[in-house]
């Protein structure tokens, strides 16, 4: 059942990285988690775009919440901005994970596919980061 599982959003400066990471999640974890990605700035270059991130969060939306995996600097700040700009009832169910983007996405999706709640999904992804 996908309805109850936490959704995963991948945000990279590069659309190719974001799409590739999403491909890995789909192939390795399957279709049991809502999944979307955002990559590149509004002009199509390397960068991130708040509106695109919001659209991705919307696309991967789950009542259980959404875990966002990001790459460098701007991806994180723009993702945080996107979260802040989401409607009030959703904001507190979106987390930006402090985890490597590709591995974190696969691990978070694996955790989510078992029906784990958002805080567990986040914690599992963040286990990947060096302590």
């Amino acid at each position: 059942m996908t309805a109850g599982n936490v959704g995963i959003v991948i945000v990279s400066h590069s659309p190719k990285v974001a799409e590739g990471a999403a491909d890995m999640v789909r192939q390795m974890v399957g279709a049991a988690v809502p999944l979307a990605w955002a990559g590149g700035n509004a002009e199509g270059g390397l960068g991130t775009d708040v509106a695109a991130i919001m659209a991705a969060i919307d696309a991967a939306w789950s009542e259980a919440g959404v875990a966002v995996l990001v790459d460098l600097g701007g991806a994180e700040t723009n993702s945080e901005m996107a979260v802040e700009m989401m409607e009030e009832g959703r904001r507190d169910r979106i987390v930006v994970c402090n985890a490597p983007i590709v591995e974190g996405a696969v691990i978070a999706a694996t955790e989510a596919s078992g029906g784990s709640p958002l805080d567990v999904v986040r914690r599992t992804a963040e286990e990947l980061s060096p302590v």
Partner: peptide, 14 residues
């Protein structure tokens, strides 16, 4: 490796 690990944990979680 990665993919079998995912399958194993998914099955365990069921």
């Amino acid at each position: 490796h990665a993919r079998p690990s995912v399958k194993l944990t998914q099955l365990a979680k069921s």
